[in-house]
């Protein structure tokens, strides 16, 4: 897959903002938004991988993890 499951935008930054500005804010765009109805015969994980990832189908997994440095 050559796309991510993240959107981003650059919020207005005021010279009087009290905290050091985060110049780019990101948000989730999870796979179900682009699928809407799952097609048949998608590739599958093994049972062990499926439990690990939380889905039988890699195409439904976007793997969120802790974002460092954003408060």
């Amino acid at each position: 897959m050559d796309y991510t499951f993240t959107g981003s935008y650059e919020p207005y930054i005021s010279p009087w903002d009290p905290c050091p500005p985060v110049k780019v804010k990101t948000f989730s765009l999870p796979p179900q938004l682009f699928m809407n109805f799952q097609p048949a015969s998608l590739p599958q994980f093994s049972p062990a991988e499926a439990l690990q990832h939380g889905s039988l189908w890699p195409a439904l997994v976007d793997g969120y993890s802790k974002r460092e440095g954003i408060s």
Binding site: P47, A50, L51, L56
Partner: peptide
């Protein structure tokens, strides 16, 4: 748990 999860999915 792994086998049951496949059934759930």
């Amino acid at each position: 748990q792994q086998a049951d999860f496949v059934v759930v999915e």
